[in-house]
Design a protein around this nucleic acid. Structure first.
Length: 424
RNA sequence: GGAAAGAUGGCAGAGUGGUCUAAUGCGGCGGUCUUGAAAACCGUUGGGUGUAACAGCCCCGGGGGUUCGAAUCCCUCUCUUUCCGCCA
């Protein structure tokens, strides 16, 4: 979430930038400023009362030790009013703080000044593209027909075991999954990301830290009996490794990567887009997470985009990189690039990665700070992350683009991971 | 799942109701000495809030309570360790 200090000092700027995200924040911003002033005032009065009580208590202590019991007991009488007043201030303060937080978590991150204005996906500028879109010659089948034909992914079986959106990968289909995961992790390792294997269930604090809770609760599967959530992305556990951590400026960059299954309820999604591998409840993803000094986070974002680009190039997929406009951005992000690959069987661009800079929006929630050697004050670190990459749509594109009469050709780079050249 | 013990500063560890604004040791930082280093000695050493800067206030696992006063007593939750049970 945004810091109150920043809101206090940049009120009009914040309101203006929020409007780029199609968020009308004027009323809430003004309310927060008002409440924060009230908070300071209440805190000050409470502190004064506490100071008085501390003084009296010390006096009573020394009176008792000096054996002056009568005076001590007299002094004790005086504290009762003081304690009542303290109680009132404490209650008021708690109420004000609760109100502030409840409004603050409703306010999205403000987009970076380089984010274009726009309403939705149709307004996202294409930054770069590459690869060769297969020419329409022979008929290209959608992947759900290919997975059936070669018996590599069984959607019906998943329905039986769990429900829609939980496919079973079989034979070369399963091996392809494993190959992609290993390929992505190896590449991330070469790029300097340390591999971690986090839990895939997280607690409420973690969900809050990265911004899934409280608002997007319905997007996550919840294990009620233990009050834990299945992660929608490795971003959640990996970023929360650094919750309540105080780093040194020298520690940057901190680079982690993780493979995890991801679970999303996708409540409200239905229709054509959910066919086959396009939208699943459980899928595999390798994520990269990076912590940065604020002065370097936008360079880091470009580096991450270049890295993800290198992956789709190595997989020989036709791709394009779009910069999300204000209206299409996520709640917590300050700037996001999406990667889309072209999938010939559906004649569609499929989103396979989203790379974002959250600036200090997450670290404020996480209390993820750092300190310069020369300075006493701590600052919030910047957090960034990106998919590198999400598997299902990569698999869909590979199947649809690489289909031939003989079968599905595996890209050169993956062959040492799969152990086979063709799915037939 | 049952029983017991425990959770204190970067680490180790004392403190069981009133100079605890937490002893001591290690580590870190600065200095003296030295050609340089080590050793020794001296000093220093967290976070939050707040302020122009001080002051003040809060933090001894989390939350609540008792008391004029809580690291210390009570309740509760979480976690750790040991033993038992179960078990990949």
């Amino acid at each position: 979430m945004l810091t109150i200090k920043f809101i206090q000092e940049n009120k009009d700027f914040v309101i203006d930038r929020l409007s780029v995200k199609k968020f009308d924040g004027k009323e809430r911003i003004e309310k927060i400023i008002e409440l924060d002033n009230e908070r300071k005032n209440t805190q000050f009065q409470l502190d004064q009362k506490l100071a008085q009580l501390n003084t009296i208590s010390k006096e009573i202590g020394s009176l008792f030790q000096a054996g002056k019991t009568v005076e001590a007991n007299n002094a004790r009488q005086k504290t009762s009013d003081l304690k009542d007043e303290i109680k009132v201030f404490e209650q008021n303060l708690a109420e004000i703080e609760k109100k502030i937080t409840s409004i603050l978590v409703q306010i999205p991150n403000i987009p970076h000044t380089s984010v274009p204005i726009g309403r939705g996906a149709e307004d996202n500028p294409i930054i770069r593209s590459g690869g060769i879109i297969p020419q329409a010659g022979s008929k290209k089948f959608p992947h759900w027909e290919l997975t059936d034909k070669y018996k590599i992914i069984d959607f019906e079986l998943g329905n039986k075991l769990t429900g829609a959106g939980f496919p079973v990968y079989k034979g070369k289909g399963a091996k392809l999954q494993r190959a992609l995961i290993n390929f992505f992790l190896d590449e991330a390792g070469k790029e300097g990301y340390m591999e971690v294997q986090p839990p895939i269930l997280v607690n409420e604090d973690s969900g809050f830290g990265t911004g899934q809770l409280p608002d997007k609760e319905g997007q996550m599967y919840h294990v009620g009996i233990d009050n834990l959530y299945l992660i929608p992305t490795a971003e959640v556990p990996v970023t929360n490794i650094y919750r309540d951590v105080l780093l040194n400026a020298k520690d940057f960059p901190v680079k982690n990567t993780a493979y995890t299954p991801c679970f999303r309820r996708e409540a409200g999604s239905y229709g054509k887009d959910v066919r086959g591998l396009n939208r699943l409840h459980q899928f595999d993803k390798v994520e990269i997470v990076r912590l940065e000094h604020p002065s370097n986070s936008y360079d880091a974002l470009e580096q991450m985009v270049n890295y993800v680009e290198s992956l789709v190039k190595k997989l020989e997929l036709p791709y394009r990189i779009v910069l999300l406009c204000g209206g299409d951005m996520g709640f917590t992000s300050a700037k996001t690039y999406d990667f889309e690959v072209y999938s010939a069987g559906q004649d569609k661009w499929l989103e396979v990665s989203s790379v974002s800079n959250f600036e200090s929006y997450q670290s404020n929630r996480l209390k993820l700070r750092f300190k310069e050697d020369s300075e006493k004050k701590t600052q919030f670190a910047h957090t960034l992350n990106g998919s590198a990459l999400a598997l299902p749509r990569i698999v869909a594109a590979l199947l649809e683009n690489n289909q031939t009469e003989k079968g599905i050709e595996i890209p050169e780079i993956l062959r040492k991971y799969t152990g086979f050249d063709i799915i037939d």
